[in-house]
Computed example of a mutant assay.
Amino acid sequence: MLDHQLYVKRAELLHERITSYKDYPFHIPAVRYLEQLSFTRPVTFIVGENGSGKSTLLEAIAIAWGFNAEGGTLNYSFETQASHSNLHEYIRLARGVKRPKDGFFFRAESYYNVASYVDRLDEEPAGGRRVIESYGGKSLHAQSHGESFFSTFLNRFGGKGLYVMDEPEAALSPVRQLSMLKRMHELVQRDSQFIIATHSPILMAYPNAEIWQFYSDRAPELVEWEDTEHYIVTRKMMTERERMLQYLFDDEYEPSDSM
Rank of each mutant, 00 (worst) to 15 (best):
D3P: 15
D3F: 09
Q5K: 15
Q5I: 06
Q5M: 09
L6E: 03
L6Q: 07
Y7R: 03
E12P: 01
H15C: 07
R17D: 12
T19K: 15
S20P: 02
K22W: 03
D23W: 13
D23M: 14
H27M: 10
H27V: 15
A30H: 04
A30T: 13
A30E: 06
V31N: 05
V31P: 00
E35F: 08
V47L: 07
E49D: 14
N50I: 05
S52A: 12
A60Y: 03
I61C: 01
G66R: 00
G71A: 03
G72K: 02
T73P: 01
L74Y: 02
N75L: 13
Y76G: 04
H84M: 07
S85T: 14
N86R: 13
L87H: 06
Y90F: 15
G96R: 04
K98R: 14
F105V: 08
F105K: 04
F105H: 02
A108G: 06
E109P: 00
E109T: 10
N113E: 09
A115W: 02
S116T: 02
S116I: 01
S116R: 11
D122S: 05
A126H: 13
A126C: 10
A126G: 11
R130C: 12
Y135A: 15
K138W: 08
Q143N: 10
F149R: 00
F150M: 13
R156V: 01
F157I: 00
F157S: 02
K160A: 05
G161W: 06
L162V: 07
L162P: 05
V164K: 11
D166T: 08
E167A: 09
E169R: 05
L172R: 02
P174K: 00
K182L: 07
K182H: 13
K182V: 09
K182S: 11
L187C: 04
V188K: 13
S192P: 03
F194D: 05
I196Y: 14
T198D: 12
I202S: 06
L203A: 09
L203M: 10
L203R: 06
A205S: 14
I211W: 10
I211V: 12
Y215E: 08
R218Y: 07
T239N: 15
E252S: 15
S256C: 09
